[in-house]
Amino acid sequence: MAGTQVVAEMAEQPAVLAAIIARRAAIHAEVRAALPQTLRGVALIARGSSDNVAVHARYLLELATGLPVSLVAPSLVTRYGFVTDMRDHLVVALSQSGRTPEIVDVAGRFADGGACVVAVTNEADSPLADVAAVTLSVGTSRELAVPATKTVTGQLALVTLLAEAAGADGALDAFTGGPAAWGQLVDAVAQTLADTDPLDAAVALLASKGSGIHLARGLTYAAALEGALKAKETTRGIHEGFSSADFLHGPLTVASPEVVVVAYGATGPVLVDVAETARAAVALGSPVIGVGHPDVAAGIDGAIGVPTPQGLGEALAVIPLVVRGQQLAIRTTLALGSDPDAPQGLNKVTATH
């Protein structure tokens, strides 16, 4: 039956997250033992869904370390021969399979240049793990459906733990919600998966339109990027993820009655920004789906609310938001009569170099 595999893998997410959270202290200790004594810089290497996780990691690592964090352009290394001194740098290489050639190649070259490479992957026994000083594994069975689900939310949890380890004790508690929020995360994801009634109207709207704009900002930005990626790779519709601030700088003009806006929000300093941007799109005719906090679409006539449990800090609230994006994409694909397990033209591992 269409979608059987991806739905089963989505259902594993609470158990996967629970196992990661149980390793929280051990992960902190392992990362701290490997970090340079004086950290000079932080860089991230990723593609695809892992690139969206890397965006989240960038925000958190900048908050935790007080250092600018860069997203590496892999082609500069693999195609242009760029070499730099990476001593006293933390390099985080993200790949669900651990087998994407360019990610492995760049991570290996940076390790040779003196970097402390941390691999964030599902495959603890992989070429990427072989070049890393520390491997943070999602620790689940192999993901078979092409759309990544449990490995994405697992990676989001792992990079949050990594950022906690890279900073001073408690430096990110204001953004995660602290130990209590980690204790609530598994139930929040389980509740999100079980609460399917609010999805029906949102899926009907998405299935009736050819394109969507996914909006968030700050520590929830990764949810918009990942929601758009899941939607485009499964429905084959045109979906794009934007920071709500970036969307106002030109792309707002694409808003229209045929373009759905999916706005993701959690309690925090950017919730009002996302809501205001959604209203700007409504003024040009776009219908709105508000995911997460009720205020993200409050007061918008006809807006469809798709809530998530509240009480998590933004850095963890992004995970239930990503789960909602998965649900919307998979259910919309099924409503369109396609199979989200195996989207046309895609493979599980994309071998870019």
Rank of each mutant, 00 (worst) to 15 (best):
T4P: 08
F82W: 15
L136K: 11
A315V: 00
D200M: 03
D169G: 10
L225A: 13
A133C: 09
A223D: 06
Q310M: 04
V55H: 07
G250A: 07
R40P: 07
V159F: 12
M1Q: 11
V262P: 05
H249S: 04
H249Y: 09
A124T: 13
A188W: 00
V322Y: 04
L60G: 03
T234L: 07
L67H: 03
V117D: 12
V91M: 05
R23A: 13
A297D: 12
G113T: 03
L76K: 13
I45W: 09
G305F: 06
V120I: 13
L172K: 06
T160E: 02
A145M: 10
G113C: 10
V288Y: 04
R87N: 14
I289Q: 10
D85R: 14
S50E: 06
L229F: 01
L321Y: 09
L334D: 06
R236T: 00
A297L: 05
S244K: 03
I45M: 13
R58P: 06
D105F: 13
Q37P: 11
L61E: 01
Q310G: 08
A34R: 14
L67E: 09
L312R: 09
T253C: 12
H249W: 09
H56P: 02
L39M: 15
A266H: 00
A228G: 07
P14D: 11
G98M: 03
I103E: 02
T160F: 00
H214K: 02
M86G: 10
V189Q: 10
V16N: 01
A283K: 15
V134D: 03
G154L: 04
L185W: 03
A157M: 06
L44K: 07
V261T: 10
G154F: 01
H89S: 00
G41A: 15
D339G: 08
Y221M: 09
D85L: 09
G302V: 00
H56D: 02
A18D: 14
V16F: 04
A165D: 00
D341V: 00
V261G: 07
A194R: 13
L316A: 04
L312C: 03
H56S: 14
G154P: 06
V272N: 13
S97L: 09
A22Q: 08
L312N: 03
V152Q: 11
K348E: 05
H353E: 14
A245M: 01
G241E: 04
Q327L: 15
Q191A: 15
V270I: 04
D173G: 12
A351Y: 12
A115D: 05
L158Q: 07
P179A: 14
G178N: 14
V349R: 11
L284A: 05
A157G: 01
E30N: 12
G292R: 07
S50M: 06
K230L: 07
Q37D: 08
T84S: 15
H56T: 04
G250F: 06
Y264H: 12
L161I: 02
L17M: 14
F247Y: 15
P74Q: 05
